[in-house]
């Protein structure tokens, strides 16, 4: 009934992973990293529910392009956000190799569309560098929780709570235009 194939379900091994980390260094946390274009991003593994292959979305009307649409995740309906579009890179042209990272933010489950999963990294707190000011850049520094250097790559760590709180407020303001205002204009 669903043509989707989960590439990997992180959920099952999550606890083990966390235990390992805690055994090694309590100040370390695991991050799932993925690529969007040439950039690499990471989110805390504890917020990742699963990673699944791309399945066609159903579009939602009158929303910014970074809201790809909604998919059916085993009976629940979750929105998919296009991270490339979100960072101003235009809508992703999806292929079968694209990946959706399903993230739990509070009570809500949401998916982010990325190019590929690249790694799972154990990162110590002290290895995370604060992000520089990204004045006027595409990226709002608010949802960057830090930067990390893995070998010679830079990984941008995202705070999913903030990332989606920005989505929410922007979406709300985008549709906040009151009917009466339009009517009277």
């Amino acid at each position: 009934m669903s043509s989707s194939t989960a590439l990997a379900t992180v959920g099952g091994s999550r606890t083990d992973a966390r235990n390992d980390v805690m055994a090694v260094n309590a100040a370390e946390e695991q991050y799932v990293t993925f690529t969007v274009g040439s950039e690499e991003y990471g989110v805390n593994i504890l917020s990742v529910r699963e990673i699944r292959g791309w399945t066609p979305e159903s579009r939602l009307p009158n929303l910014p392009d970074y809201v790809r649409g909604v998919i059916n995740l085993r009976g629940i309906i979750i929105p998919i956000f296009d991270l490339r579009a979100r960072f101003g890179g235009g809508a992703t042209s999806v292929t079968k190799r694209h990946v959706v990272v399903v993230i739990q933010v509070g009570e809500r489950t949401r998916g982010i569309l990325v190019d590929a999963i690249s790694d799972i990294l154990a990162i110590g707190h002290d290895a995370i560098k604060p992000p520089p000011d990204v004045d006027g850049g595409m990226v709002d520094a608010e949802y960057l929780s830090g930067l990390y250097t893995a070998d010679d790559r830079m990984v941008t760590l995202l705070s999913v709570e903030k990332l989606f709180s920005v989505e929410n407020s922007e979406l709300d303001s985008a549709t906040k235009a009151l009917p009466a205002l339009e009517r009277a204009s």
Binding site: P61, G75, I77, I78, R108, T109, L171
Partner: peptide, 11 residues
Amino acid sequence: KSLEANFRRLD
């Protein structure tokens, strides 16, 4: 199915 559970209401 709820759209709002994980997203929001739409006009």
